[in-house]
Design a protein around this nucleic acid. Structure first.
Length: 773
DNA sequence: GGAGGCCTCGGAAGG
DNA sequence: CGAGGCCTCC
């Protein structure tokens, strides 16, 4: 496959061939971003670059996997040697290799966010702090943001501003919690997700030799979704690339929707400042959506101030207008979506999988689900608990973690009395106290309970000792047996399997099946390892844990569960595309979210989220809102989202509204009595908003639009004047000539003689004819 | 030590 | 409204 370059348009080609020096690729929605990244790597390999010298970073395992597969398809097994993976997995690998330099064992545990939450909860409790003020979620995200900005405990202590912020928020003990949290993690030989990046920075900046080594290893660095990088990731990338400066970042500032988890849109906006000789290549041709969708999306995003200049366009067909639907209640909204799906399936011979329903919050899925179920439309709700977050899996994994790292205190606490073995809270509290007094790990006390430094009664001590003996036997086995043998042994000996088998409720059976699934997965892992050459082979349970610690999602995607409508949050839909997309709940305080209304940057992010939602659609986008909605059990009144108003009206089809006879003046559209035409000025912070509306669309449309009949482009919901003899076009019936007009107003009828289907009589208000001449 | 009732609180979610 | 943490009572 040597003609791979011929599949690219000029900008894509440029992005692929510009392999030297810093390059930023701004990839508009649907512009073939993955194709460029893939081919760029293929191109490097074809030029003779050693795969070991290429570092390619993504945010999700899925993205990494897909890219690897695509490259492998073209260049073969050579692709396996590329350093390709998520930030976290690549740097976890490096950290394990260099762990001793940071005082960690190489088999350190990775705490997921539940583990860190549990630890924080314990710390806050131990410090006797008010849990209403020191809420775990707040503390956790605060510490996360410290770490993502490289603010260590020491740096925090020296930072008066942060201290002042926390004092002002009535959380003066934040620094102390942070300190204890970091110490506990270290004591447990554990790193949380943020540590994987923070410690990598530490490693690279404190050990110039290590930095030097990896700078020389990675001749070429590629970063996908650069707009999603946080400061910590930014610094790592910068450090690694600073020697060769062969760095290529790909992203779209307009799709930056993750600031709430630390992503810093400045990284992409400032790339040119960081690398003065950077080449910026824009992929502006959209291959996914119709012109109406692309133009509507452009008109919305132009309301944002913080953005890189680009003009997304498409040569696809004009397509349908964006539909806007209003319902009285949220359940009516769901019914109207479901019936529209059903109708479209029949009329356009579409499959269920051609449809997606996108919403701002997960809570909105329920009404949608009910409506779909009533009509027997198959659907799948994405999101929710992933496989590895299930209790039964986490319990089992906690045993594995203990067997591999005895210092893992969160795992120990999770299983010391599960299944029930009579070790209660008072025993655990006593041992915890002893551990802290003697400056030992909790396991050191548990594993040596017979030496009686704790003062448990003999019955409790025996129970603890039996537990310790059990864990020790697991640990010994890890060194000798393969992961599957150890895992099945643990499942039986720990009593978990027995516990599962007894429970015959549907939930219990499902838990048992999940456990089986986990064991099957471990068997697969062992089999795969056994296929490798002996020197690369590692079938141990510890290695299995390393392998899957960062897999937060079970690979259920390929477990194709057939033709279904997809229900998901807009965040989850990023990167996906569907012929028909329904964006529901377009209401003020829901979308945009109420929490985004106080700051311009937050509102802009909501707008980007809306942009992402719109640009998922290939053929048709339908927006909807309800006038009332149940929220936390209460019925509340809603107003349509400002985002609907921000779309240039000529791309909208809101013909369902009882249009009053009064003429609408431009820029002051009337969506019905409940529509708020004026947004409160304090929200109206974007300067660009004042620009005349009609500008936003054509400005973004390049030459090729001229091929399109301007009359078609001008089509909108406004009443059109028809006369006999006019040549018109209908979506379904094709081209024809008007032969008769009847009635007036709402009852106005038009008879058209269509070339293909003969004469048809249509109601003018529903006909939506394009006047051709 | 465990079950069940009370209370609180609610955003989006990658690794 | 519903999930999950916490507390009380047995």
């Amino acid at each position: 496959m040597s003609d791979y370059l011929s599949h690219l348009n000029p900008s894509q080609l440029k992005a692929v061939k510009q392999t030297k020096g810093p390059v930023m690729v701004i990839a508009g929605a649907g512009s073939g971003k993955t194709r460029v990244l893939t081919y760029r790597i293929v191109h490097l390999l074809k030029q003779g670059v050693d795969p070991f010298n290429i570092l390619s970073l993504t945010f999700t395992n899925k993205a990494a996997k897909e890219m690897k597969e695509r490259i492998e398809k073209i260049v073969g097994l050579e692709a396996k040697n590329i350093w390709m993976g998520t930030f976290h997995s690549v740097f976890a690998k490096i950290l394990r290799y260099e762990a001793d330099k940071l005082g960690y064992p190489s088999n350190f545990t990775i705490y997921d966010s539940d583990d860190s939450k549990a630890l924080l909860r314990r710390i806050i409790k131990e410090m006797n702090l008010d849990t209403d003020i020191y809420k775990v979620n707040i503390v956790q995200s605060r510490i996360s943001s410290f770490k993502n900005n490289l603010i260590t405990v020491k740096a925090y202590t020296n930072n008066a501003e942060l201290k002042t912020q926390d004092d002002a928020a009535h959380r003066p003990q934040m620094g102390m919690i942070y300190e204890k949290y970091v110490k506990e993690c270290f004591k447990s030989a554990a790193m949380d997700f943020d540590d994987l990046l923070l410690k990598t920075n530490e490693l690279l900046f404190r050990h110039p030799d290590v930095l030097h080594k990896y700078q020389h290893r990675f001749h070429y660095v590629l970063v996908d979704e650069y707009q999603d990088t946080n400061h910590s990731q930014y610094l790592i990338v910068k450090a690694l690339a600073s020697l060769n400066e062969n760095i290529c970042v790909v992203g779209d500032d307009a799709q930056s929707i993750y600031s709430f988890r630390g992503a810093n849109i400045r990284n992409i906006l400032n790339f040119k400042k960081d690398y003065s000789d950077a080449k910026v290549i824009k992929l502006e041709q959209n291959y996914r959506s119709t012109q109406n969708i692309v133009n509507a999306a452009n008109s919305v995003i132009s309301n944002n101030k913080d953005q890189l200049d680009k003009k997304v366009w498409t040569s696809n067909q004009l397509g349908e207008l964006i539909k806007v639907n209003r319902s009285t209640t949220d359940s009516e909204e769901a019914v109207s979506v479901a019936s529209s799906i059903q109708e479209t399936k029949l009329r356009e011979q579409a499959l269920s999988q051609d449809f997606a329903i996108l919403y701002r919050t997960n809570a909105q899925s329920r009404t949608m689900e009910e409506a779909l179920r009533k009509r027997n439309i198959p659907y799948r709700i994405y999101g929710g608990l992933s496989f590895y977050q299930r209790k039964e899996i986490k319990d089992m994994m906690a045993y594995f973690r203990m067997a591999s790292n005895l210092r893992d205190e969160e795992a120990l606490r999770r299983i010391i009395n599960y299944p029930k073995r009579g070790i209660g809270n008072s025993s655990i509290d006593r041992m915890t106290l002893a551990a802290s007094e003697q400056q030992k790990t909790l396991w050191a006390i548990v594993g040596d309970i017979k030496n009686d430094s704790v003062g448990l009664n003999s019955g409790s001590a025996t129970k603890v000792d039996n537990f310790a003996t059990l864990i020790k036997s697991f640990q010994m086995m890890v060194a000798e047996k393969d992961a599957f043998e150890v895992a099945t042994y643990i499942a039986k000996q720990s009593g978990i399997l027995r516990e599962m088998q007894v429970d015959k409720t549907p939930e219990g059976i499902s838990r048992f099946e999940n456990l089986q699934e986990l064991l099957n997965g471990i068997q697969d892992f062992v089999n795969q390892e056994n296929e490798k050459p002996e020197e690369e082979r590692n079938t141990s349970l510890s290695y299995y844990l390393e392998d899957i610690a960062l897999l937060t999602d079970a690979e259920k995607a390929d477990e194709d569960d057939g033709d279904h409508v997809s229900l998901m949050t807009i965040h989850q839909s990023k990167g996906l595309e569907f012929p028909y997309v329904y964006v529901v709940g377009l209401e003020e305080n829901l979308f945009p979210s109420q929490m985004s209304l106080t700051a311009r940057v937050d509102l802009e992010e909501e707008r980007r989220l809306f942009y992402v939602a719109l640009t998922r659609a290939e053929k048709r986008a339908t927006l909807s809102y309800a006038l009332t909605r149940y929220r936390w059990g209460n019925l509340i009144d809603c107003e349509p989202s400002r985002f609907i108003e921000e779309i240039n009206e000529k791309y909208l089809d809101i013909n369902f509204i009882n249009v009053k006879s009064s003429p609408r003046n431009a820029g002051n559209r009337n969506f019905g009595s409940n529509y708020k035409t004026k947004v409160p000025s304090r929200y109206n912070t974007s300067k660009k908003k004042e620009a005349p509306k009609q500008d936003s669309a054509p400005r973004f449309i390049p030459k090729n639009l001229k091929k399109i009949n301007p009359n078609i482009q001008a089509r909108n919901y406004k009443e059109q004047t028809y006369s006999t003899g006019m040549k018109v076009e209908h979506d379904r019936f094709g081209v024809g000539v008007i032969c008769k007009l009847d009635g007036s107003g709402a009852n106005k009828k038009i008879s058209v003689n269509f070339t293909d289907v003969g004469e048809k009589t249509l109601l003018a208000k529903f006909a939506k004819l394009n006047i051709l001449k």
